[in-house]
Design a protein around this nucleic acid. Structure first.
Lengths: 350, 350
DNA sequence: TGTTAGCACTCGAGAGCATAGAGTGCTAAC
DNA sequence: GTTAGCACTCTATGCTCTCGAGTGCTAACA
């Protein structure tokens, strides 16, 4: 059986309708609303073919048709167009989320998640810029009380992270400044993952004397990379799932929300997708069993040319893909520009 | 109608049973399981009285009885005993949550919420130590790139907060150190809410020259107090609500989860309760309409003698109050001790 | 006077059944 | 190739019936 143009047209109509109605679509609906030139009987024949091809399914004999995961895949790859364009308000909301002046990266990320979930009515995920993909610009140790210090790690995209460590009481502020200077001199321009205290020239004497200190310093640096990479997934709009009839069942809603609760899995999902600009996984294409009746759409965002993080949306497979992709595209670009801007300003200052 | 001892006993039995079963309790159940010396008929008469007194209600004529909010109030105030003691494992879990060596206050708070929700199976809330209740120990400005600096605010309970600000490019590291020194000298020992740059002696010349800078510095300090106070409510175990039959209905679960999503309301609720060691509001005692079929139990925790934050549990009015209170009591103390310990160590250092 | 056995009564949950309506597949005619 | 017509299927809905848990009341009992 070959795939005629008309079959594709019918398939698209079924999906478009099902996306908004969530109710199995019958041949008469298609005939009336989408293709009045053909009778329901004609559509019916075609739909039977589409079912045989594995693109449509029937929940039961006398019900309409529902698109299969494969159908959504086809839809996403070939069928869907630019329908559901963003309105001026949408665009404004996106711009505003990232453009409000702030140096708090976390805050920008949170607003991003909030706006994406609001505009799409699905659950939004944002993977914060990943440190391991950034280069170090500066390490600064700041004495707090005697015996403790703050480690501030500055990267090329934004100030990233700080952490408190114990330091030998023998070190005074000047010592810390000197250590900071050397570490910075040695590592500025390197990826964070490369940092290794043994590489610091002229540090070996101090190293020997203050073994414990440097050890904990390294632990902090490593933790910073690891923790940040594992922890910085921001989510918003999880309750949106209740808007969709497929999750009116408390059991399913619970399973979904519980899945979202395991940040590390979310992280792995998002982090594994930063290679391509967009990534869409539909239903059973998802490796996670709890996600096999959902779709996940992600877009990476870039600082300069480097992809540093990603934004994603989770919703039912019956998702408004065109709109979601448009939101993610614009949001990703805006976010990247914002981070790049911070970078740029800093460069100008120097 | 007067309240006999036996009526109280029956009421307690009804509540104890309903707390675990979630099913209206009949007279026969009470007679068999709790008071075999009396027949179901006797219990029945007493229950009818209790209903007339507004302590029990019937969902419909031929069903058992359910405790009213007033009954829970009575139970909490007079009836409940020390049943459901914490096990050794419970105690260990609580201790471990706060004792693991860390200087990251946020991390301790998160673990606290996690353990409380795990041990109680309800939703846990933790209000982080409130800055406005702390005294300042040190303000430190750290130059990052030229034109930006990190403001670190150290309080007497823990390092609290840092934030990035723009600074005049004319200021070098020494200037920042000097400003930090003066601010610290002037404000150490004061409550954070008192901080006002105009009060700094000898600062007026610089103030005039660097108006914008000081303005933004003050903004940061104020924001730090406000933001921290408004934002630092950590929640865990929200999905636990699905464990309870009264929330099997997706609509109710949604309403509950949506309510938890508005952090500022949670904040106000928790912050308004730091005067008394414990606070229990049951059902309609709650001002928030969305919470009127829930109970909220909170306990404050103290650093030294000052209450600085609180821990809370939200669940159905049919809540295991004794256990929840025991968990909160121990957790509150442990948390207070942990923060006090940080304080103590710092003092030793000086 | 307090307690209890007995009994009629009430109400909701759940099973069983009939009906309406949406949608299908197939056939025959255009 | 398209379509009208029709028998068929299946679900959702509403109705009735029954079962069982629990009640309130009365009368007997200690």
């Amino acid at each position: 059986m070959d795939m005629s143009q008309r079959k594709l047209e019918i398939l698209k109509a079924v999906i478009d309708d099902y996306i908004v109605s969530a109710v199995p679509v019958g041949s008469r609906t298609i005939s009336r609303k989408y293709m009045p030139n053909f009778s329901s009987a004609t559509i019916r024949n075609e739909m039977a073919d589409l079912e045989e091809m594995g693109l449509l399914t029937q929940p039961h004999t006398s019900a309409g048709r529902i698109p299969s995961d494969r159908a959504y895949r086809l839809y996403v790859d070939q069928l869907m167009g630019g329908e559901a364009m963003l309105t001026k308000e949408d665009v404004a909301a996106i711009r505003q989320a990232v453009n409000r002046r702030t140096d708090e990266m976390e805050e920008v990320i949170r607003r991003t998640a909030s706006v994406v979930s609001e505009l799409t009515h699905y659950t939004a995920l944002v993977l914060a810029p990943q440190l391991r993909r950034m280069t170090l610009r500066r390490i600064q140790l700041v004495g707090l009380t005697r015996g403790t210090a703050l480690v501030v790690i500055v990267t090329d995209a934004a100030v990233a992270k700080d952490s408190i460590i114990r330091v030998p009481e023998s070190l005074d502020d000047d010592d810390l400044a000197e250590i900071s200077r050397r570490l910075t001199q040695r590592f500025a321009g390197h990826a964070l993952t490369d940092v290794d205290v043994n590489m610091v020239p002229g540090m070996s004497d101090e190293l020997r004397r203050n073994r414990d200190f440097f050890h904990s310093l390294m632990t902090v640096l490593e933790d910073t990379v690891v923790q940040n990479d594992g922890g910085e997934v921001v989510m918003d709009g999880a309750v949106n799932i209740f808007n969709y009839p497929e999750y009116q069942d408390a059991e399913r809603a619970k399973a979904f929300l519980q899945f979202l609760h395991t940040r590390d899995r979310l992280y792995r999902m998002l982090a594994g997708r930063t290679k391509r600009e967009y990534s869409i996984t539909i239903g059973e294409e998802n490796a996670e069993p709890d996600l096999q009746d959902c779709s996940l759409v992600t877009a990476t965002y870039r600082v300069g040319n480097r992809p540093v993080g990603s934004i994603g949306v989770i919703g039912p497979t019956r998702m408004n893909y065109p709109r979601v992709m448009q939101v993610l595209r614009l949001m990703g670009r805006s976010l990247g520009e914002t981070f790049a801007q911070v970078l740029h300003e800093d460069r100008e200052d120097q």
